[in-house]
Structures are given as structure tokens and as C-alpha cells.
């Protein structure tokens, strides 16, 4: 889909407001650009290469009046333009309604997503995907663990930086269901290009179901391949960085993998989530995303197959 990340195809009230502002700005700017170009071309051609050399500049007074008038017109246009900016600014700063609170933590080069709830057991940590209910405001708190990143989902809103030492906030709302792609918009090092995330807006009921499912620890593997896969996971360096709830793992350096199988992409939007890509990623992450903090893994072919089956099964 070619419009998953287009600011021109808004899916929420804020992006829509900004789109209207953009369209209006373009409608103001385009005629000015055309008029100036026409004036320049006409001015250059009308008296071109005439043999007559004016002794003294003609009609300076009349021209001064014209120029002053045009300067005044410029100021008026800028003023009107500015006022419409102000009205857009006012309508963007906050949304009404009780928000869903999400904290987004930037890491080089992936996103940690935390859902807050007053009940501790209802809190949830996942990665690289934010599920939200359609029509409900979301207040995203933005933090960073390393360098400055920027959270930007063009179809919902403009961007806001994640700055170490600062806590920023941004309000979002999706008014129609869908999957909206976002991407880090502040240069954050080698893999800045591959630091994407998805915001998935669903009707409240489906969101609730998803949330309940996510709260569950990973199901115990049922068949022998997956049991072998879990063994491979636990017996290799994976556990240094990753957590799968329901197993004795607690690594926090990399994304939580408890429900990896249900996600759209791998490695923060780098690859589609298919068994083939997962295998490639586990074996050779540096080839796919050079510079990523994930090390290559030398697994036997059967071990790898089992691991992939296990991970893809974590729905």
C-alpha cells in the first residue's frame, strides 16, 4: 500500500487539521510563485536589448508606490497566513476525552511500547507496534534510553522527539481502523532508516481482545519441534537481551518477544514477519541491518528451524 505513511492521507483529526493547513498554504503559495515568475519573465522581456539607455531612472516615484503597495500586500498575506496557523496550533495541542496512556521508549533502533494501567498486572510491554482503539484519544509519553529519536506517524499527527533526559507527550486519535506506518524522523545513527513502527487502530472490542491476549504469558510449546525451539532459545544468547513471558527470561536490551508471531514486521519494520525472513534475521542480522545490536547466531539447521517454528508460534 503506497499511502501507509503519507501526510496527505490523514486518518485522525490532527493529521486532517494539518492537511487542511497544508492545502491552504499551497493554495496561497502557488499563485504567488506563479505571479512572481510571470513578473520576472515579463520584466526581463519587455524592454530587452533595447538600444535606448535611460539617462535617469524613470518614474521612480510611481514605482516606489507600487513596490510599497506590494510590500504591504505581502505583509497582509503573511498575516492572514499566520492567523490560520494560529488557529491550527490551538486545535492541535490537546484532545478531549479520557486518554489511553502509552509510553514509547526509543532505542537504537527499535521502539519499546508500554501500556499503563492502574492495575499492575494489566500493564503491558511490547515492541514496534502500538495497537489503539479507534476514536479514543491516546496520550503517548515519549522517552529515550540512548540518543534522540523522533516519533512520527504522518497519517495521525506530526512528529515529536524522544529526548534522553526529557519526557515529551503527544496526543493522537485514529478515526478509522487501519494500520499506519511511522518512522523515526530524527537521525539516530547507523540504522536510522530501519527504525519503523506501526500504529494499528481497531474497534474497541477488537482492541480489548488483543490487549487481553497480549497480557497472557506465552503459551507453552505443544509439539516437539517447538519444544526444541524453546530449548534453542533458552540455550543460546537470545536470552541475554530478550524476554518471553512465561519462560525464565528477563533480558531488556532487545524487544519483548512474548507475542512475536502476531506482529507485522521484524526488526522495527525492516522485514515482513515471515518464517523465511525470521530465519535470515536470526542467523545474519548484521547482513540485513548492519550495525544493529543483535549479534549473528550460529545455529544448526534443525535448531534454527525449530527456533523459527517456536517464535512464529508465539501469537
Amino acid at each position: 500500500d503506497q499511502r501507509v505513511q503519507s501526510a496527505l492521507d490523514p486518518a485522525g483529526p490532527q493529521a486532517e487539521r494539518i492537511r487542511r493547513l497544508m492545502v491552504m498554504s499551497i493554495w496561497i503559495a502557488a499563485p504567488i510563485a506563479v505571479a512572481v515568475t510571470a513578473a520576472v519573465v515579463w520584466a526581463a522581456l519587455r524592454g530587452r536589448d533595447s538600444a535606448h539607455v535611460p539617462e535617469t531612472p524613470r518614474a521612480d516615484r510611481r514605482m516606489a508606490a507600487t513596490v510599497a503597495g506590494l510590500v504591504a500586500a505581502t505583509v497582509v498575506v503573511l498575516f492572514v497566513w499566520m492567523i490560520s496557523d494560529f488557529s491550527a496550533i490551538r486545535s492541535l495541542s490537546k484532545l478531549d476525552g479520557r486518554p489511553l496512556a502509552v509510553t514509547l521508549v526509543g532505542h537504537q533502533w527499535w521502539w519499546e511500547v508500554q501500556y499503563h494501567d492502574s492495575v499492575a498486572s494489566h500493564q503491558l510491554t511490547t515492541a514496534n507496534e502500538i495497537h489503539i482503539p479507534v476514536g479514543r484519544p491516546v496520550l503517548v509519553t515519549l522517552e529515550s534510553r540512548d540518543v534522540i529519536h523522533s516519533f512520527w506517524v504522518p497519517r495521525l499527527h506530526g512528529k515529536r522527539d524522544l529526548i534522553p533526559g526529557y519526557t515529551n507527550r503527544i496526543w493522537l486519535r485514529a478515526d478509522k481502523p487501519g494500520a499506519f506506518r511511522g518512522q523515526c524522523a530524527e537521525f539516530c545513527g547507523q540504522q536510522h532508516a530501519n527504525m519503523a513502527l506501526w500504529v494499528i487502530a481497531e474497534p474497541q472490542a477488537r482492541f480489548d481482545a488483543w490487549y487481553r491476549a497480549q497480557l497472557q504469558p506465552a503459551a507453552a510449546p505443544a509439539d516437539s519441534t517447538r519444544i526444541a525451539g524453546q530449548k534453542a532459545f533458552l540455550g543460546n544468547s537470545c536470552v541475554m537481551c530478550h524476554t518471553i513471558r512465561g519462560t525464565p527470561t528477563g533480558g531488556r536490551n532487545g524487544p519483548d518477544l512474548t507475542h512475536l508471531g502476531g506482529r507485522r514486521t521484524l526488526a522495527a519494520g525492516t522485514l515482513p514477519n515471515t518464517p523465511g525472513h525470521l530465519g535470515g534475521w536470526v542467523v545474519d542480522p548484521q547482513g540485513i541491518k548492519p550495525g544493529t545490536t543483535m549479534p549473528p547466531n550460529n545455529l544448526r539447521p534443525d535448531e534454527l528451524r525449530a527456533l523459527i517454528a517456536y517464535l512464529e508460534g508465539l501469537k
Binding site: R17, I18, S25, I32, A33, G158, K159, R160, A185
Partner: peptide, 27 residues
């Protein structure tokens, strides 16, 4: 120069607006 600079100036006025800039900054 006159033509190109006016275009650049107009897009400059566009991104002087905070909401516009929040979408188009760093793009």
C-alpha cells in the same frame, strides 16, 4: 535566482508554521 528563491522562501513560510513543520520537519 529570483524564481527559485521565491519558491524556497514560500516553502520556508510554510514550515515556519508549527503544525506544518511538525509534519514536514526532517523530511
Amino acid at each position: 535566482f529570483l524564481v527559485l528563491f521565491v519558491i524556497g522562501g514560500l516553502t520556508g513560510v510554510m514550515i515556519a508554521s508549527v503544525p506544518f513543520d511538525l509534519q514536514m520537519h526532517d523530511t
